[in-house]
Amino acid sequence: MEENKIIDVTEMIKNEIKSNDIVLFMKGTPVFPMCGFSAAVVQILTDIGVKFNSINVLDSNEMREGIKQFSNWPTIPQLYIKEEFVGGCDIVKEIYESGELLQLLNRKGIEVKSR
């Protein structure tokens, strides 16, 4: 990937995670997820009832590869909360089931819609 493309993507990623409390880099969109693991994380965020911004990495190869380099994490989806990389599908599932995800959201002052 050419040098300037890497820089552009990295800036885009930084911008996204700065300007949104929760960002999910995924394959597809929340309405049309293109991968089971991405869909699973969308489901968890929906169940909790938090607002999140999603980025479809399938829209650009630079983003698909750039996000993996940015986080030094080899797979998609990737969840960010307040600029912090939280994990992929298995970690998000694990901390959701253990209650740690809700604690993290509370600690970060992120509003959760009570069910």
């Binding site: 994490w73 990389f85 994990g87 694990e94 901390i95």
Partner: peptide, 9 residues
């Protein structure tokens, strides 16, 4: 957990 998984990757 992230660090642990990265070790495996």
């Amino acid at each position: 957990r992230v660090e642990q998984h990265k070790m495996v990757y």
